[in-house]
């Protein structure tokens, strides 16, 4: 009991530390928000008036979300390597606590981004979501999955050179099950299908989230301590 509570406490401290550090420079926040807004404007500017169907609009939304995540979420570990603070971090907290803290930060960042970007997308595209509850749930589940994959891959690429290019290349194949189900589910939610029909997508997203999160927690120690 005590060991678990200290683990979660330490994870919370890591999260707070990253939050403070982030607001000092605002590097990741700037990168991810500006990238998302730019992409959104490019997309809506180029195809906005065409009046596309939900089948096209839901993949576009997820492409924006995926590449925005790729633009900023690697910073969480790359920063530690660039500022050479990772060794200190290794001393003060166990690997699991660090992963949990960093994951929480990335998840909060990505969901915070979506709170801004998704309504903007709906406005720009003149899109009416007929099943808002299902829509929100699928975006929430999908982004939890994306942020999990992004966090573990960020930990891997922070040790390599050519980080920026590698991050998207390594993340994409692993994110693909999330993207496929999320795109499918989002399209159904926009079209106003009932929750029952989207159950399959929820199940896959949830199952994948559990599997990839568990694998990441187990494997993180091997990345962090070499």
């Amino acid at each position: 009991m005590t060991s678990r509570s200290t683990l979660l406490h330490k994870a919370w401290y890591v999260f707070q530390k990253d939050l403070h550090q982030e607001f000092r420079t605002r590097y990741a926040i700037n990168a991810i928000f500006l990238f998302a807004v730019t992409t959104l404007i490019v997309v809506s500017f180029s195809i906005g008036p065409a009046g596309l169907s939900a089948q096209v609009l839901s993949p576009l939304l997820w492409i924006i979300i995926f590449f925005s995540a790729m633009s900023g979420l690697s910073h969480i570990f790359v920063r530690e390597e660039e500022q050479q603070t990772s060794d200190t971090l290794r001393l003060v907290a166990p690997a699991n606590a660090i992963f949990l803290g960093k994951w929480l930060f990335n998840a909060v960042l990505l969901i915070g981004l979506e709170i801004l970007i998704v309504p903007l997308y709906l406005i720009f595209m003149n899109l009416e979501v007929k099943n808002p509850g299902g829509f929100a749930a699928i975006i929430l589940l999908g982004s939890l999955g994306v942020s999990t994959v992004a966090t573990i891959i960020a930990a891997i690429i922070s040790r390599a050179s050519a980080r920026g290019a590698l991050f998207a290349v390594l993340s994409f194949p692993i994110t693909l099950p999330i993207l496929v189900s999320a795109i499918h589910g989002t399209g159904m939610a926009i079209a106003g299908r009932p929750m029952v029909e989207m159950m399959g997508d929820y199940q896959i997203l949830f199952a994948f989230l559990v599997v990839i999160f568990t694998a990441s927690v187990l494997l993180f120690e091997f990345i962090w301590i070499i």
């Binding site: 573990i152 990839i212 694998a215 990441s216």
Partner: peptide
Amino acid sequence: QLSAVYSILAFVTVPF
């Protein structure tokens, strides 16, 4: 070590 971790992560994904 890192490529081993990536290989396992990817392998977990394939059944999905």
